[in-house]
Design a protein around this nucleic acid. Structure first.
Ligand SMILES: Nc1ccn([C@H]2C[C@H](O)[C@@H](COP(=O)(O)OP(=O)(O)OP(=O)(O)O)O2)c(=O)n1
Ligand code: SF4
Length: 1175
DNA sequence: GACAACTGGAAGTTCCGGTAGATTTCTTCA
DNA sequence: AGTCATGAAGAAATCTAGCGGAACTTCCAG
């Protein structure tokens, strides 16, 4: 217990990194000394007894810590290399290194070496170096080129490459040029193959530079200047390797015994070896190989102590705590829970608390943990953008050179790079890329942003949403205070930090992320890490390349052709017959419309016939499909497309997912499986999207516009058929009604029987372009149909029958009947019934959804405010409640009353601020906006206040609308809700009434209620308003304060202090009332306070949380404010004879004063708060 | 140099320009 | 009867609220 000696950080991980040593000696004996040193600090305040106890405890904890940290040691069969190694790979990358002498004796110089990281089923970490895989691409071969030309070409190209890559030390740039027989994927071609040149280069980066040379043109003796088309030349090297070896993301790889060599380890992995790429066996993920290896998942979170009023910056502010949880895949409890703290920290049950004196020790302890535990996956919340870069930059600032070796490769530092991801779907989002070699990072924040549309992505609101659990949010300035307190306050912080580390793990489990993402990686064939860092197109491209390789096809590299026509026509949306439908509405929907069109009509790059070839090739007309948009594609008997094959696989995977979904019971599990099913659907739809992506790799608008044109034709055909069959054939009960209608409106219509006769002669078939179906429709187009709405691939049909069951029967019948008119696999399905159904407009409707006749499943809303994230909660709740009352309870008066109450609450300022927060996404950086928008302007203002916490591109900005001068634009009235709370700024209820709730309500009630506007928005409930005054905002500088009477709120003259002359004499009554009011508010506040204490997990500590996303927070704040105000009123009772106190109170009492606003012209506007205007 | 699935549609906001109506200013005239 | 002040009426100028529509923006349906 020598307190004087300089402390060492605990060194267990380093020793323990060598498993054999660990076994040889008892770890307990070995590390006791360091252990004592480390925890000395805490013992300073403790008694001798505690000290001894603590000491024993720590000894034990460290011993168990080590056995817990390390991976199981590999068996002899592994260490002696006498068995084959089978492992699940999680990450693949490559490095440039010297070729392996033994494996590739004939090679020299540097080459790309692939590294595969993974885990065996026993849980050993694996690093496999793969040699012999060379980067290559193809170019077209001119017919005149003979073998001599090729070798001359080789030499010239080698020379040009030497010029371009001057400082590369490779002996030979172009390894080989081979003549191969292949075919381009573009356009249908009659010959099977033609010659191409395969160019094998030395290093992956040379593909691009070589491509550049060949595209520009190269002078070949005897042939002149030749420009080449390049093929497969834009494929990432690691992906190329995966494709050629048939490896898909997260699958199992086997390296047979004897085919691998071990050498001096370059990594920290337990099993490390070298092999040839041709010796790898990739197992397709089926049966035994569809399982998961027991990989280790580290979830962590850091806390930093920022300076007062500043967000922590790594150049100044220390890292004070790091919480870690390690879980084995497939288990539901972490087997390691610890926290590393700077300075002492009181013990926490079930958690290994490790305290250190210096930040350096904390950081190094974390690095050691990483190295020893050797996690395969690192998760956390916002780790990519914050935690990891912070740790690394911090270590740099402190000059800890040995810290950033976090990956599995010895002496290799992690690199941090800024990245932006921008797509039409997800907008622009900035992030950082931290390369930790051999470990997959899985930032739950990124996953959430991609997979779920939420109005806030803070950990708090996400966990509230998925785990129904609030998480306190401690402001960064308070974190410093806690750190600077004592062991207890630091314990408090540690608990908070641990929770932040635990929640991502819970989310990961609950949303089955590992399982779902591995599946997606396997189906689409990309590495896991791509799923979070890349978009949809890489998935399609990966599948395309795989299929193309099987079929001997090549994918051309096309430069951006600027002249290409920008857009093409999309889907039809049928005109919506808005209204409230009390009879059941059946929905017919094509199953995966676009994918099935592509499959049915064999649409693919390789089946497209160019207009030129249509004339030249003389393909028999029965072998081609002419699409409604005028393109020609050959049928599958001539050439089967590869896109249809890809789609078949994706849809098969989706089918499996849907089958799992059926099994699921638990609602959340259902939601998750539904998400998985939807993700696969999106992947399938993206195949179509890929062809229409003009900025993508291989756009082919002929395909995409053909798909949509078929789609348009099909929905039109379906609509006509339904309208036709179900309004004209006898035997459907509803006919009478419609006939009556026709008699009223129609003229010149034929009778039903006539139509029937005609129908019997031919069932219109889709496919004969513009044939019968057009004929039928032209005859009937004036006829009022039963199809009330439809979008892209669905039609909503009002059969007119009164019961859900009957509608279902008719729906099924109709679906079957109409499906018969389409080519396989296009299938119209009866999906659901809405009853009742409120159709507001195109893409906006609500209804009760029934899938079985007994009971409705749920209320379904599409497009309206309840599902839109850019509405405040008030509107969402209000609309939701009204819909509930209208659709389920069928209680329209109740709905009206509810609206009135809500409006009156709003106007009387009884609304809690959390309900008024509007959020909008920031899609571009400040300057790029053309017009001023509320959230953009606010983001700019917040940036001026504090740049570090202000929203960035891709973030969502929460704001409320505050009171301002009349006629002020919304962008002048937006404000940060926290700021509003802190500064007691009044909100603008009028804005919320007029701009937020009125229009949605009118849209909702219009079809149901006469005079909706008058009834809802101008009734007596709108008469009482309460105007609150700002506390200290700008215009208050011109305000003169005046008190109001407690009894009747009238303005007080100078002589009165509490009550006006009228109310004098009612003192006792009013006093009692005020007291009761105060105590009521106190109880409310107390209750909320306790709730928060429960949330933060301790009942005897202050609540520090300022969570923008928690409704309780707003309520607590409001209760607090109301209570304070009420107390001030109470105090006023006693002022009557103490005039000098008055001023003081006046200051406190900002909320209850009236003010007089002077305008420069001299006109006066008088208002007072808490004055009830009765009209 | 690498990266980015697609279109259709509703709705809210700002901006801009022509306008009706109000207000002010000027003119005329009793 | 001529001159001047005044006020009313009318005309001209000016202001302004409110409008429609375009453009921009966000988000959702499919
Ligand atoms: N993100 C999307 C969603 C849809 N679509 C296109 C392709 C779909 O085929 C069509 C219809 O979409 P649905 O949402 O109705 O989905 P599907 O019909 O594909 O699937 P299902 O009806 O089986 O759920 O719209 C698209 O391009 N991109
Ligand atoms: S406001 Fe209270 S309940 Fe909400 S997150 Fe904070 S501590 Fe928890």
């Amino acid at each position: 217990m020598n307190k004087g000696i300089s402390r060492k950080r605990p060194t267990p991980p380093q020793q323990a990194a060598n498993p054999s040593k660990q076994q040889a000696t008892s770890p307990e004996d070995e590390f006791v000394d360091e252990d004592e040193d480390v925890f000395l600090d805490e013992t300073l305040f403790e008694t001798e007894d505690d000290l001894v106890l603590r000491d024993i405890e720590q000894r034990q904890s460290l011993a168990s810590r080590l056995t817990k940290w390390a991976r199981p040691p590999p068996s002899h069969a592994y260490t002696s290399a006498s068995r084959s190694v089978v492992f699940q790979q999680l990450e693949i990358d490559y490095v440039i290194g010297e070729s392996h002498r033994e494996l590739l004796p004939n090679w020299s110089g540097s080459a790309a070496i692939i590294r595969i990281f993974g885990v065996t089923k026993e849980g050993h970490s694996v690093c496999c170096h793969v040699h012999g895989f060379e980067p290559y691409f193809y170019i077209n071969c001119f017919p005149v080129m003979g073998p001599d030309d090729i070798s001359r070409f080789h030499q010239i190209l080698e020379g040009r490459m030497g010029e371009v890559n001057r400082n590369s030390k490779v002996p030979k740039f172009i390894r080989r040029i081979e003549m191969v027989q292949k075919r381009s994927i573009m356009y249908y071609q009659q010959q099977d193959s033609e010659p191409f040149l395969k160019i094998v280069v030395a290093l992956p980066t040379m593909v691009a530079s070589c491509r550049g040379i060949l595209e520009k043109g190269i002078l070949i003796d005897g042939l002149g200047m030749k420009k080449f088309m390049t093929y497969d030349s834009n494929v990432l090297f690691a992906l190329r390797f995966m494709i050629d070896c048939n490896i898909v993301g997260g699958n199992w790889i086997e390296v047979p015994a004897g085919r691998y060599k071990t050498t001096k380890p370059l990594s920290y992995c337990q099993l490390e070896f070298h092999c040839l790429y041709s010796d790898l066996i990739s197992h397709t993920p089926e049966g035994e190989f569809s399982k998961m290896a027991p990989f280790r998942i580290l979830s962590f979170d850091i806390e930093c102590a920022g300076r007062k009023g500043h967000f922590p910056e790594p150049t100044h502010d220390p890292v004070i705590q790091v919480a870690n949880l390690v879980t084995m895949q497939g288990e539901n409890q972490p087997f390691i829970r610890n926290i590393m703290t700077l300075k002492s920290c009181a013990p926490i049950v079930g958690v290994d608390v490790m305290s250190f004196d210096t930040e350096r020790e904390v950081l190094l302890a974390w690095r050691d943990l990483l190295r020893e535990v050797d996690p395969d996956v690192i998760i956390g919340y916002n780790i990519c953008k914050f935690d990891l870069p912070y740790l690394i930059e911090r270590a740099e600032t402190l000059g800890i050179a040995e810290f950033p070796i976090l990956g599995r490769i010895k002496n290799s530092r992690v690199r941090v790079k800024d990245t932006t991801f921008s797509s039409r779907q997800h907008g622009t989002r900035e992030s950082k890329e931290v390369t930790v070699e051999g470990r997959v990072q899985f930032d739950l924040l990124q996953a959430m942003q991609r997979d779920y549309k939420l109005s806030s992505y803070s950990l708090n609101s996400v966990s509230a949403h998925f785990l129904s659990e609030q998480k306190e949010d401690v402001h960064h300035s308070i974190i410093s205070d806690l750190q600077n307190g004592n062991a207890e306050t630091r314990r408090r912080l540690a608990v908070y930090c641990l929770k932040d580390a635990y929640l991502p793990q819970r989310l990961l489990d609950k949303l089955m992320y590992i399982y779902n993402y591995v599946e997606m990686a396997r189906v689409t064939g990309v590495p896991m890490s791509f799923l979070l860092s890349r978009g949809q197109s890489i998935k399609v491209l990966s599948q395309l390349l795989r299929k193309a390789k099987q079929k001997n096809l090549l994918i051309p590299y096309v430069k951006k052709a600027g002249s290409e026509q920008g857009t093409y026509e999309g889907a039809t949306v049928l005109e919506a017959k808005a209204g409230f439908y009390e009879k059941p509405i059946a929905t017919l929907d094509f199953a995966s419309l676009y994918p099935s069109i592509m499959m049915a009509y064999n649409l693919c790059y390789c089946t497209l016939v160019t207009p030129e070839d249509v004339r030249k090739l003389n393909i028999p007309p029965e072998c081609v499909n002419k699409t409604p948009s005028g393109e020609t594609f050959v049928k599958s008997n001539l050439q089967k497309g590869i896109l249809p094959e890809i789609l078949e696989e994706l849809l098969a995977a989706r089918k499996r997912a849907k089958a799992d979904l059926k099994e699921a019971k638990d609602p959340l599990e259902k939601a998750v499986l539904d998400g998985r099913q939807l993700a696969l659907k999106v992947s399938a739809n993206s195949v179509y999207g890929f062809t229409g992506a003009t900025v993508g790799q291989l756009p082919c608008l002929e395909i995409s516009s053909s798909v949509t044109s078929y789609g348009r034709q099909m929905i039109e055909h379906t609509k006509n058929l339904v309208n036709d069959k179900f309004t004209t054939l006898k035997g459907y009960e509803h006919n009478a009604e419609h006939e009556a209608f026709w008699e009223l409106t129609g003229f010149g219509f034929r009778r039903n029987s006539e139509v029937k006769r005609e129908r019997d002669q031919s069932i219109p078939r889709m496919g004969d372009p513009l044939g019968n179906s057009a004929h039928v429709s032209s005859q009937k187009q004036n006829r009022e149909g039963v199809v009330i709405y439809g979008d892209t691939d669905s039609v909503m049909v009002q059969f007119g029958v009164p019961t859900v069951e009957a509608a279902m029967d008719l729906g099924r019948e109709a679906a079957e009947y109409i499906s018969g008119t389409f080519i396989k696999p296009i299938k119209l399905e009866f999906e659901k019934v809405y009853h009742p159904y409120l159709l507001i407009s195109k893409k906006r409707y609500a209804g009760l959804l029934w899938t079985n006749p007994g009971k409705f499943d749920k209320m379904d809303t599409k497009g309206i405010e309840t599902v839109r994230r850019d509405n405040c909660l008030l509107v969402k709740n209000l609309v939701n409640e009204c819909l509930h009352k209208i659709l389920i309870d069928r209680d329209i008066p109740g709905a009206v009353q509810y609206v009135k109450n809500t409006i009156s609450d709003l106007l009387m300022n009884r609304m809690d601020l959390s309900l008024l927060v509007i959020t909008k996404g920031l899609t571009k950086t400040g300057d790029d906006y053309g017009v001023k928008a509320a959230h953009v302007e606010l983001a700019e203002r917040m940036r001026k206040r504090d740049a570090a916490t202000a929203p960035n591109v891709g973030d969502r900005v929460p704001y409320v609308i505050i009171k301002a001068a009349k006629g002020a634009k919304a962008y002048e009235k937006s404000e940060d809700p926290i700021y509003v709370l802190e500064n007691n700024i009044p909100i603008d209820p009028q804005y919320y009434l007029e701009n937020q709730i009125s229009k949605p309500l009118l849209r909702l009630f219009e079809p149901i209620l006469k005079n909706a506007s008058k009834e809802l928005l101008h009734g007596s409930h709108t008469r009482s308003i309460s105007i609150s005054t700002p506390a200290n905002s700008g215009i208050m500088r011109f305000a003169k304060k005046q008190l109001t009477c407690v009894g009747c709120k009238a303005l007080l003259s100078k002589s009165d202090h509490t009550l006006c002359s009228h109310c004098k004499g009612r003192e006792a009554e009013l006093y009692c009332k005020t007291v009761a009011h105060v105590s009521e508010l106190e109880t409310l506040f107390g209750r909320l306070w306790t709730q928060c204490q429960e949330c933060q997990g301790s009942l005897h500590q202050d609540v520090l949380c300022t969570s923008r996303d928690c409704p309780i927070f707003y309520r607590r704040k409001k209760a607090q404010k109301d209570m304070a105000e009420a107390k001030v009123q109470l105090d006023r009772k006693f002022w009557i004879n103490q005039p000098q106190q008055q001023q003081q109170h006046q200051k406190l009492e900002m909320g209850v004063i009236a003010f007089e606003l002077r305008r420069s012209e001299g006109s006066h506007v008088k208002r007072n708060k808490r004055t009830t205007f009765e009209c």
